[in-house]
């Protein structure tokens, strides 16, 4: 048991180190972006005097080290700085974008998890059987279509041709009209469901052939009990880690889907901030993404260790 605790401690420490590295890296990389907010704001009217005045007004003429320390010092208080474009706190921008993104991500996960479990289990019932081959063929085909192409295709068919669903979420609150969510959620679910169901299938097939399942069978347990209670938990570890990766991906807002369906989420906030060289907002977002990634993977590793204690998961 102490071994388990030590492992958990090591894993948490690693997570903390990763977080610190993310914070430093984000600052260095955003500093390295060519051009600053003053240049971006001046646009096609790059009057040098005007750029200098904007720069001064935004405090961009202060040394980088000074700005870094101030930024880090604010973090424990939940202060990520102030947007250059609006003069409002960065956390406000993130909160505004987080709503639609969380709703999209939540709806996608709600659909994704049961669907990929079901498909994976179904395919694994008889390896190489008709169902298995059909599921494999469809998932490989769908997985090869990029989100952008799939989004354009679904919008053209279901919104513009058949008129069943709204083409975009423009002008409607994502919370107000669930119909606007259908197409984006379908696009977001399409590829992860393929990878996840294939991982579940592979894990199930391996688990069903394992000695501990054979042992459970010899005890005379029912087929469904063996499948659900003994084989499935072992099969889920790799899928759990893949699911963590999908969570990061979804919280990133999946920029193309947000742009295509006009969902004003975190991806849109990031694109706007980058175009305006609104560095504090970009940095705030990058830190949040970094933290989410570190935490999701930490959670997946802890879960995997619990589901399949004997396997040596990364730590």
């Amino acid at each position: 048991m102490t071994g388990g605790l030590a492992w958990t401690g090591r894993r948490l420490l690693l997570g903390a180190g990763q977080t610190a590295a993310v914070v430093l890296l984000v600052f260095v990389l955003t500093e390295a972006l060519p051009g600053d907010a003053a240049v971006a704001l001046a646009g096609d009217q790059p009057d040098p005097e005007r750029i200098a005045r904007i720069r001064e007004a935004m405090g961009l003429d202060r040394p980088a080290a000074e700005r870094f320390l101030e930024w880090v010092a604010g973090m424990p208080r939940g202060d990520l700085g102030t947007s250059l474009a609006t003069g409002r706190p960065v956390t406000g921008h993130l909160a505004a974008g987080a709503g639609p993104t969380l709703i999209l991500a939540g709806a996608t996960l709600t659909l994704l998890v049961p669907l990929s479990l079901g498909l994976g289990m179904l395919a694994a019932r008889r390896e190489g059987g008709l169902t298995d081959r059909a599921v494999s063929a469809v998932t490989v085909a769908v997985h090869s279509v990029p989100e952008f192409a799939l989004g354009v295709l679904l919008a053209a068919v279901f919104a513009l041709h058949l008129g069943w669903l709204p083409a975009t979420a423009v002008g409607t609150a994502v919370t107000g009209d669930p119909a606007v969510l259908v197409l984006p959620v379908l696009v977001l679910t399409a590829r992860p469901v393929c990878t996840l169901s294939r991982l579940v299938r592979a894990g199930m097939i391996e688990a069903m052939a394992s000695p501990y399942v054979a042992q459970a069978r010899r005890y005379g347990l029912s087929a469904s009990r063996v499948r659900w209670a003994h084989a499935l938990p072992g099969a889920l570890a790799p899928a759990g880690q893949q699911l963590a990766r999908t969570c990061d991906w979804l919280l990133g807002g999946v920029i193309v889907v947000e742009a295509l369906f006009v969902v004003p989420g975190l991806g849109t906030v990031l694109i706007d901030a980058l175009a305006a060289r609104d560095v504090p907002v970009v940095q705030g977002l990058a830190v949040v993404y970094g933290l989410v990634t570190v935490m999701a993977n930490l959670g997946a590793d802890l879960l995997a260790r619990r589901l399949a204690p004997r396997s040596e998961v990364a730590a």
Binding site: V152, A167, T168, A259, L260, F261, D272
Partner: peptide, 9 residues
């Protein structure tokens, strides 16, 4: 922001 979104809308 996206041109295809404006056209689809």
């Amino acid at each position: 922001g996206e041109e295809s979104a404006r056209v689809n809308a």
